[in-house]
């Protein structure tokens, strides 16, 4: 079993609309955080390409693949890989996003796993112990999904 961080945020829309804003409008609500950059040349513009991968289009014109999409179920579930440019091939994390109707709202749950594969000494962890790192990362996810919720 692997460690994971889970956050949940309610947004005022249907699950389908929340899914659309998450995927189609990610460039509008994403807010780059210097603590969790994908590449040394970030930030760029985030985009899901062809329902197959999540990328960051860098100011240099280069496109960095954050991860392949592994589940694309509009209004229900989205899953994709998540790696930073500094990861070795065996370092990989995964993100799963679940969209559930709760009354007139949608509960958006983000589950991020795989950070055990990245040691504390790695630049991505900033020397942080895994649990503390996950807490900070979870807080950032909450902030991101709050911003997404403002656009639904």
């Amino acid at each position: 079993m692997a460690s994971r961080v889970l956050i949940s945020v309610r947004v005022k829309s249907t699950p389908l609309r929340a899914f659309e804003v998450f995927t189609s409008d990610i460039a509008l609500w994403w807010n780059s955080n210097p603590e969790f950059v994908f590449t040394p040349r970030s930030p760029g513009e985030m985009a899901f390409e062809g329902q197959t991968r999540l990328v960051e289009r860098l100011p240099s014109g280069k496109v960095f693949e954050v991860g392949k999409v592994t589940a694309w179920e509009p209004g229900v579930r989205l899953a994709f890989g998540w790696r930073q440019a500094t990861f070795t091939p065996d370092q990989m994390t995964d993100v799963e996003v679940i969209f559930e109707a709760v009354g007139a709202e949608t509960r958006v749950t983000v589950i991020h796993t795989g950070w055990d594969s990245v040691p504390r000494e790695h630049v991505a962890k900033h020397g942080m112990e895994n649990g503390y790192f996950l807490k900070r990362h979870g807080d950032w996810w909450r902030e991101l999904i709050d911003r997404m919720g403002e656009r639904v």
Binding site: S3, V5, S8, R10, D116, G131, L134, G138
Partner: peptide, 16 residues
């Protein structure tokens, strides 16, 4: 009550 943040350790234990 609704879970808004859950951090689990490598053994699946609830860290926070």
């Amino acid at each position: 009550f609704e879970i808004i943040l859950l951090i689990e350790g490598p053994d699946g234990s609830v860290g926070h």
